[in-house]
Nucleic acid binder design. Sequence first.
DNA 1: ACCGGAGCCTGTTAGC
DNA 2: TGCTAACAGGCTCCGG
Length: 278
Amino acid sequence: MPELPEVETYVRALKPLLKGKTILSAEVHWPRTIAAPDADRFTDLVRGRSFSSFGRRGKYMLLGLDSAETLIVHLRMTGELRLLPLPAPGASAADAPVDKHTHVLFNLDTREQLRYRDTRKFGRIWLVENTSEVVGKLGPEPLDDAFVPQTLAQTLAGRKANVKALLLNQSLLAGVGNIYADESLFRARIDPRRAGGSLALEEIERLHLALRDVLLEGIEAQGSSVQNYAPPTGAKGGFQDKFQVFRRSGEPCFTCGTSISRTVLAQRSTHFCPACQS
DNA sequence: ACCGGAGCCTGTTAGC
DNA sequence: TGCTAACAGGCTCCGG
């Protein structure tokens, strides 16, 4: 579901909601959600810990606890975190029913509950001392100053795979997913089907700028809400209103009027303007 | 090293 | 209306 801007929005929203609060207990209803350690050990280790730091790497949320450990959450396609108040003492438990898609619960010391919900069950949660066990293989952060056009040039050099697939490869560049890949390729006027190694330096420079601009604008808009994504505050993102090509196949290009095309690359729907991106 | 495809899951929508 | 196939913002694993 979420890409870099949506995860960044999530982390910024969670910080004031969770900072300093303590986990009294946790329940795991779908053990596979807990990638490491095993679910029993996980619930033991988080008990009594409080949230102390909030970060992001690629599409992973890094929630540091007051132990030596970090709770890492990846929402994948349909994961979501919600903080909700528990019913007042004496009220019925039916006031806070746990639906069948809620797989992990954290009971906090504030009479609140943090719930991990995930319809498709692709999302994963880790508790690790060393975050590099989970995020160590990720490529550079596209919004870091260290990510310069030359970085992208080295990534693409000699590659035969299409540039869309390369942008989605998290070990090459962290945080870009289907929406922001399509939107940045449109802005850079590059055909997503092109082999990565075929891009000229001028095109790589355009793509580098487009990636950063699109991701920053996505964060500014608090992410994109297609279908039902919304940050934990419940407010919806606004970047879906800025889409130039994503899920616009058959509609006219805002730049030239040509019908937006759809194809499949790297097993993912890919949207582009066949006139502007050639 | 690199690349493409199957698999993981459930729900919604398009098409006959 | 009812059924089926395609599709959905992601990633891992495996074979060539």
